[in-house]
């Protein structure tokens, strides 16, 4: 009994598309961040490259990064240093595989996994290894502290992230991303209405997982120069750069799918081509929220971050699970 060869080909093509999506998404969100932050700060932001609105700024940046010399510190552990960005990128790309864009599983998704959300949470931890590798191999104390902070932070926030999704899984009765969306489409309202606590915790934990403000201690320019990416330059830096923005996208997609009804919108037939647009609009709102927060808040301290995770988020999310489970059985 063997799997069809065509299956592998199809999978390869879908994966290639998912891989191509990462730089595009990274550039779009990167541009959005530049432009939005500029307007929040009474600046114009990029306006030159590409003629109007500086739309080609990120492309120009990309070209610049690729042209730059790939500097590897002499004392660095070369193989680990070289592979770290790839691993970070891998974790990001792998997340995009399960994003449901459309009810049709043939076009809308690379692969609908039965354990979809579980897969997403598992694979996102691969990036952590990449971050730790980058921090350790750079032979730089700032990088090292950055890597350690990243690890401590990701360990702490993995738990509330997972626990926050459990409520949704209980309500939907499935872990498949498609299944969760169809459950929301079927009932007509998103889980955010009932799982608002889970949603809030998920978004906070997401910010921490993405190491974005107010949880950007692993990078913390004013303290650690650039944290674990201090020693990276050129193409390898581009990997981290794109991975950050692509990760924003994929985490927002997961949040939108779990809590905001994914491609479903009340009154609109999900079978149409509007579905991906609806999903992207929801993602856009979440991404905007993250950008807005980033340019408003200062950074927390490491111990405050851990306190928040262990003393607040985890107990609350466990309580949320218990309440959801009881209500599920009762109602």
């Amino acid at each position: 009994m063997s799997l069809e060869l065509t299956f592998w080909w199809l999978l390869a093509i879908k994966l290639a598309v998912a891989a191509a999506v990462v730089p595009v998404i990274g550039m779009v969100i990167g541009y959005a961040e530049m432009k939005l932050s500029a307007h929040m700060q009474s600046r114009v932001g990029p306006y030159f490259a590409g003629g109007r609105f500086g739309w080609a700024q990120l492309i120009a940046d990309g070209v610049k990064f690729i042209q730059k010399e790939d500097i590897i510190p002499e004392k660095a552990d070369r193989p680990v240093f070289k592979w770290a960005p790839a691993l970070v990128m891998l974790g990001t790309m792998a997340l995009l595989v399960i994003v449901p864009l459309h009810p049709s599983s043939r076009y809308g998704i690379v692969r609908d996994l039965e354990v979809g959300i579980f897969y997403a949470l598992a694979i996102s931890s691969v990036s952590t290894i990449g971050v730790l590798m980058a921090g350790w191999s750079s032979a730089n104390k700032y990088s090292m502290i950055g890597g350690l902070r990243a690890a401590g932070q990701l360990i702490a926030y993995e738990l509330p992230l997972v626990l926050a999704t459990v409520g949704v899984v209980i309500q939907a009765g499935t872990m498949s991303m498609q299944g969760i969306v169809s459950a929301q489409v079927a009932q007509g309202w998103p889980f955010a209405l009932t799982q608002f606590i889970g949603f809030a915790i998920f978004m906070i934990a997401t910010l921490a997982e993405l190491t974005r403000l107010p949880f950007d201690m692993p990078i913390a320019e004013s303290e650690l120069v650039m944290g674990y990416v201090t020693e990276y330059s050129g193409f390898r830096f581009l990997f981290f750069f794109l991975a950050e923005f692509a990760n924003m996208f994929s985490m927002s997609v997961i949040a939108a799918t779990l809590f905001l009804g994914g491609y479903g919108l009340w009154g609109i037939n999900p079978e149409t081509l509007l579905s991906p647009i609806i999903l992207f609009a929801k993602v856009g709102v979440l991404v905007f929220l993250m950008i807005w927060l980033r340019w408003t808040l200062p950074r927390l301290r490491e111990d405050q971050l851990q306190t928040l995770a262990w003393k607040w988020l985890i107990p609350i999310s466990i309580l949320n699970i218990i309440v959801t489970a009881v209500l599920k059985v009762v109602i």
Binding site: E114, F118, S125, T128, A151
Partner: peptide, 21 residues
């Protein structure tokens, strides 16, 4: 599948990260 991702989540995501940490 489930066992595979448990392996990734628990062993790679938590145990080895803690090791490295």
């Amino acid at each position: 599948e489930f066992v595979a991702w448990v392996l990734v989540l628990v062993y790679i995501g938590a145990v080895v990260v803690l090791f490295l940490f």
